[in-house]
């Protein structure tokens, strides 16, 4: 059953010299409970597509349907985790997680219980009354994940969530995310430019082309989890994806150089 349906989606941005076609005729069908990674170099429109699913910017043409409803604006049915964490720095960890519940109008006791449950799930109970500035990047991103999990949204959108973390923290958050995903059965759309991260996490990897953003390749990853990054299978896939992404990266760099010389 399709949970996210992306139907003939185009996105164009006006710029002084004309327009940028960020997305061109994207058609995707993401099943419920599927873990999908959008992979590509910067400028390939992967974040644009994610923002369109989140409802932050509507497509120029085409429609996006999530859970049978057309997307017209942001909403708590599609929780978003940002690379910059976007935690409210004036709220403690517990209050950040509670924010969405209060907006929902959840009763105090129920909200308290939910916050405690999430803090426990992510192993952050002792951080409940800290402010975000006192946390490491990994801890901050855990709070951001807990904040969207609190909403119990069926879909999780993640925009390079672990991009700013060091390799070890990154791996432990990836494992934690996989654990949460297999436990809660969410549909996850995860943007990354790391090939290895995509292979480690995803059921399905969608490689996007550099401008205009189109689907270059749609790859299923059949390896059993936890996946071993040293295995031949992993590396074969890595080589293949690497070739695809590098082609687009080269187009990106060529376009940049062309842009510079015409200035």
């Amino acid at each position: 059953m399709a949970d996210i349906l992306i139907d003939h989606v185009h996105k164009r941005f006006p710029i002084p010299e004309g327009e940028v076609v960020a997305l061109k005729d994207i058609n995707l069908d993401i099943a419920q409970g599927e873990f999908v990674c959008l992979l590509g170099p910067s400028g390939c429109g992967k974040s644009t597509l994610l923002n369109a699913i989140a409802g932050f910017s509507n497509p120029t043409d085409g429609t996006i349907t999530v859970g049978g409803k057309a997307v017209t604006g942001p909403g708590p049915d599609r929780g978003m985790v940002f690379q910059e964490y976007a935690l409210f720095p004036w709220m403690t960890v517990a209050k950040n997680i509670r924010f969405g519940l209060e907006i929902k109008g959840m009763a105090n006791d129920a909200a308290d219980a939910r916050v405690t449950e999430l803090l426990d799930m992510l192993g952050m109970r002792e951080f409940a009354n800290r402010f975000p500035k006192d946390l490491s990047g990994g801890m901050r991103q855990r709070v951001a994940i807990a904040r969207v999990l609190a909403l119990d949204s069926p879909v999780l959108l993640m925009d390079e969530p672990f991009g700013a973390l060091d390799a070890l923290t990154r791996r432990s958050l990836q494992d934690e995310l996989l654990k949460i995903w297999s436990r809660l059965g969410k549909t996850i759309v995860f943007v990354t430019h790391s090939i290895e991260e995509a292979i480690y996490l995803a059921d399905r990897i969608i490689v996007l082309t550099y401008r205009p953003g189109t689907v270059k390749s749609d790859v299923r990853v059949e390896m059993a989890r936890p996946r071993d990054a040293a295995s031949p299978e992993f590396n074969a896939l890595k080589r293949e994806l690497s070739r695809l992404v590098t082609e687009e990266q080269q187009r990106h760099e060529a376009a940049e150089r062309a842009g510079l010389t015409t200035d």
């Binding site: 989140a54 604006g73 909403g75 708590p76 929780g79 976007a86 924010f99 969207v148």
Partner: peptide, 15 residues
Amino acid sequence: IYLRAARNLGAGPLT
């Protein structure tokens, strides 16, 4: 980014 996060969590203009 804070406004986007708040809208994503379902906050209305007044909140």
